[in-house]
Design a binder for these strands. Structure first.
Lengths: 246, 246
DNA sequence: AGGCAGATATTATCATATAAATACGACATA
DNA sequence: TATGTCGTATTTATATGATAATATCTGCCT
């Protein structure tokens, strides 16, 4: 249990340690999760701390615990990938391009629809936020702002402007992943000069109340991000040699 | 704490009770969540049970608990809508057409993309599953199968055939919601004879390895579901008079 | 072989005690 | 008056011990 302890209480630290270990595959069919008692001993914590951590992980779909059966790791299909913690553990411990591809496929589906809704809903305040993010991207071109943060802010602001709670929620986990994804795609394709321009087209379409157009522009942007990843996969780039991915 | 207790241990029961109460708005700014001690007393459970339930809800983003601050309900934006429990509590305690619309907007984005991927990936076994679900829908037309279950099975099988873990996960919560959604849309638009035919078009496109076509057919299907809901909203149908929604 | 009964191990629950965190107010100081 | 420091009370965090419930295993019986 030697991960970041800043601002985390014991239970959270245990949950973090266990969560990582589980997703790493440390526990499974061959190496079942140790019993409550063993866990306490290994981590030097009380049963309260261990049990509460277990409940937390159970709520995320990682494990179940039943009397006499012990703590069982659930099949991966049960893990709640839409939980920020789970996703973070996955990207930290098993940073595969595969997961990034699948996640980007989700974004390909979601972001154009979100842009379309943003153009329909016309929430001026939130559209203004998109504009501000766009400005930051412009600033970033000349080094006056962080390009990664600006890029993330842009995509999140669009999801926010969709005024759809599910899309807005998705923003939270997209945030987690974009910090890896954008860096990777930018690294691969180079931070093109057209980067800002492509984003601006989406914004302009939203301002101009052109839902279809906004969706089309967003699709174009996301498709290029996806194809960057797919081509990297085809080239056989794996987690071993894809430095920028960590 | 008088909800379903079948197969749930005490902690889960407490979590279920609390989760519902929170989402119902029983606790909030005016009525803060009672302290741990009070909670134990009110529910007649030990502190362990209460605390573990609290950890579980915290993992789902509903609450935080800090010393001297007590248990706080987090703003709704923090709630993990992609958690099956949270979503179930929301639909049980606050069945608004609004939420259904937002959820369907998500499906409009996701299902066509999933159909497209299914057509690309061509996993024969999983495509076969889609076919089986389609057969069930056919059977349902003559009363030989449950139309609701068949419909759900169809949509889930497409998500599964996309071989994208995020889409497959989405299936879990779509399952939760479809049981309400499909019933509603069918009720409103009538279970058309074309119901099976429209679904078949998607299946055929996937089998024919036509990703674009599959997506287009799925879009058509989802758009009509969405417009049914939207028009209901415009007519001012609310949870008070929309019986079929419960 | 098949099934039942008891032994056993493990989590579930309860109870209690102590530690740690922090909101809040008292008080001092400038 | 404004501001910063400190003490106190309250609440959660953590630890520990005891008992109950339950699933699994084992061995005996048929």
């Amino acid at each position: 249990m030697n991960r970041n302890t800043r601002g985390m209480n014991l239970t959270q630290q245990v949950a973090d340690t266990l969560g990582n270990a589980i997703i790493n595959g440390k526990y499974g069919a061959h190496n079942p999760v140790p019993s409550e008692a063993t866990l306490c001993e290994e981590l030097n914590v009380s049963r309260s701390a261990a049990r509460e951590a277990v409940k937390s992980l159970a709520a995320k779909g990682l494990i179940t615990s039943r009397a006499r059966q012990g703590i069982r790791v659930l099949p991966e299909t049960e893990w709640n990938l839409f939980d920020a913690d789970v996703l973070r553990w996955m990207r930290d411990s098993n940073p595969s391009l595969e997961l990034l591809r699948e996640f980007t496929e989700l974004r390909v589906a979601v972001e154009p629809e979100a842009a379309m809704l943003a153009a329909q809903r016309q929430n001026q305040q939130k559209i203004h936020e998109i504009g501000r993010a766009l400005d930051r991207m412009k600033q970033a071109e000349t080094g006056l702002d962080d390009p990664l943060e600006a890029d993330i802010a842009f995509h999140l602001s669009i999801l926010d402007a969709s005024e759809n709670r599910f899309f807005m929620q998705l923003g939270r986990i997209i945030d987690t992943t974009l910090r890896v994804s954008i860096r990777f795609t930018n690294m691969r394709s180079g931070v093109r000069a057209g980067n800002h321009a492509e984003h601006k087209m989406i914004y302009d379409a939203i301002v101009a109340k052109q839902p279809e157009n906004a969706a089309a522009c967003a699709t174009a942007l996301m498709d290029s991000a996806l194809s960057t990843i797919v081509s990297a996969l085809k080239e056989g780039i794996t987690k071993e040699n894809a430095l920028p991915f960590r």
